[in-house]
Design a protein around this nucleic acid. Structure first.
Length: 296
DNA sequence: CGACTTTGACCTGCGC
DNA sequence: GCGCAGGTCAAAGTCG
């Protein structure tokens, strides 16, 4: 936990999906923002919003994403929308290929159902504790996005398989669990609706894609896609990636700007690319440690 | 028939 | 230790 870096940022999208605009930032991003490693727990979110973004937290148009940590409180807060969704950027590297995180469980389950041998049980316990320790170490980076959308599952270019759904306490809306269908890619995402504002979908990504975005996928990009294609995948992160990620096979800036929404069709591709470039720079400042890693 | 979703059961961590 | 809530599994169902 101590080695986790926490950030806080604020997105308002897709209705005006320019980071500069949505954050109401001057062209020069406050460097203190990127360098001071803001910890939501030690900062007043409201004052932060006002100081750094000049935004009123009460504004219903303001959605946020932040970085953060792994905690149950995090999850429940996400659901209620009472506090900013957090974006996790745990610095504990989670290299691809840590098998057994999930398989261990299923294996255990299978063993339990197949036999009840004592020897088996004790070895299972040992294995279990080991795995739990590993699991604790391997905290995946998490990033949450709050998106105003009628559709729960936003297209982000990757292919996902739903593996669970749970009712969330203090929320009328269930939380869905998705896993990237690409082999050996352990990225997961949770999708839920904000209890307070049902029009808002909270998407939380966990892990890093270890593969490129499927090219033939008819996805349209959102900020989530930006994250998926760039933030999530250190190896694939380049300056060119933002426009690439934003423009999907549809080649439409409109779809890139707002999944399930209309009114973005008149975006100028050129200025759009400039936007993306700017957004990349901005994100870089917001998530410096991650981008540093990625660019090395 | 493969890919994907649904859903009840199960596992785990945490607070009391 | 118990109960609760979040997260995951996996069989069954659905769809193209």
């Amino acid at each position: 936990m101590s080695n986790e870096t926490k950030y806080l940022c604020n997105y308002q999208y897709p209705s005006s999906f320019s980071l500069h605009e949505m954050m109401n930032l001057p062209s020069s991003t406050p460097s203190s923002y990127g360098n001071s490693r803001l910890d939501p727990s030690s900062y007043s979110y409201d004052s932060l919003l006002q100081k750094t973004f000049g935004l009123s937290p009460s504004s219903s148009e303001v959605f946020n994403s932040s970085i953060d940590q792994e905690s149950k409180r995090d999850a429940s807060n996400d659901a209620t929308g009472e506090t900013p969704a957090r974006v996790s950027a745990s610095s504990s590297s989670s290299e691809a290929g840590h098998p057994g995180k999930d398989s261990g469980k299923s294996q255990k389950k299978r063993e339990l159902s197949e036999d009840g041998c004592e020897e088996n049980q004790s070895s299972k316990k040992l294995g279990k504790t080991k795995k739990m320790e590993e699991k604790k170490k391997q905290r995946e980076p998490r990033v949450s996005f709050m998106t105003k959308s009628e559709v729960d599952h936003l297209e982000d270019g990757y292919r996902w398989r739903k593996y669970g759904q749970k009712a969330v306490k203090n929320s009328h809306y269930p939380r869905s669990y998705y896993r990237c269908t690409t082999q050996r890619c352990n990225v997961k995402k949770r999708v839920e609706r904000s209890f307070q504002d049902p029009t808002v979908v909270i998407t939380t990504y966990e892990g890093q894609h270890n593969h490129p975005i499927p090219t033939n996928h008819r996805g349209s990009s959102t900020a989530a896609a930006m994250y998926s294609a760039n933030f999530m995948n250190p190896r694939s992160l380049t300056h060119e990636m933002f426009p690439t990620a934003a423009y999907t096979s549809s080649g439409s800036a409109a779809s890139a700007y707002g999944y399930g929404q209309s009114g973005y069709g008149n975006a100028n591709p050129n200025s759009y690319q400039e936007y993306r470039q700017g957004e990349y720079e901005l994100l870089k400042e917001i998530f410096p440690s991650i981008f540093f890693k990625q660019e090395r």
